[in-house]
Design a protein around this nucleic acid. Sequence first.
DNA 1: CTGTGGCTTCAAGTCGACTTGAGGCCAAGC
DNA 2: GCTTGGCCTCAAGTCGACTTGAAGCCACAG
Lengths: 138, 138
Amino acid sequence: MATLDIGEVARRAGLPTSTLRFYEERGLIAATGRNGLRRQFDAGVLQRLALISLGRAAGFSLDEIAAMLGSDGQPTIDRAQLAARADELDHSIRRLTALRDSLRHAAVCPAASHLECPSFQKLLRVAERYRPRRKSRS
Amino acid sequence: MATLDIGEVARRAGLPTSTLRFYEERGLIAATGRNGLRRQFDAGVLQRLALISLGRAAGFSLDEIAAMLGSDGQPTIDRAQLAARADELDHSIRRLTALRDSLRHAAVCPAASHLECPSFQKLLRVAERYRPRRKSRS
DNA sequence: CTGTGGCTTCAAGTCGACTTGAGGCCAAGC
DNA sequence: GCTTGGCCTCAAGTCGACTTGAAGCCACAG
């Protein structure tokens, strides 16, 4: 089967080549070999990259992802870890939902009263002691 | 009224003093004066810090927050911006929800079949081309 | 009078995930 | 032959949000 060179993988995965080299260096992906100097990848790397994106989206660090996706193709995923992350996501979702509702409210509630408005105060309570480890926007 | 020194504010807000100095430097909060060398804050700063946490939780950067909370206490919040952020949050929430559901599924779905499993494939599709700007975990 | 604790400043370091830059190889096209 | 494009390596830079370290002031306790 045809092997892909890095530019092609980049194009198909929607990632810059620099990222692919970086991922290789970190052991997240591997080239099947070289054609001269050029890395050759087989198509499976695309799925692996999708898994990596997935992990990132779920909030795992590259190191955690590297641990989960062993050196083989099959993800060696710790089910308990997955479930735990699902629970964490659940928490995040709840907080974000409260936040979203309150933001929408704040967007229509008259300004002067924000600090007196019960919804706004609730919002503040939700936000209090917010301690981010990592942040996300789209 | 009693003014608070930085350690007290830190204790009440649950933030390290270094963060408070940093926030002051960035214009997010202001001391009312000094007692000798020591910064004195009045209690209002706690609400302001809550607003800052709120902004962070909603995904705003410190610069954006500084712009929204003018130098006065009253937040000068752009309603359109709030609504826009609420919409963005909505997107995030949807993605995270799909992710959570799929993670939960993956946690119970037999390993060998992950890559063939329709839910898992859907999960991959959701995650594809994920491009994080900032990340969040609780 | 000497710690000790809590504050001060300022510069530099950290972390994660990449990106950028400098300098170079190699094959194809003109 | 020469340029162009795509790849290569390795080191260093970037960004946001802080943290850490060094060096020092000041007040109160023992």
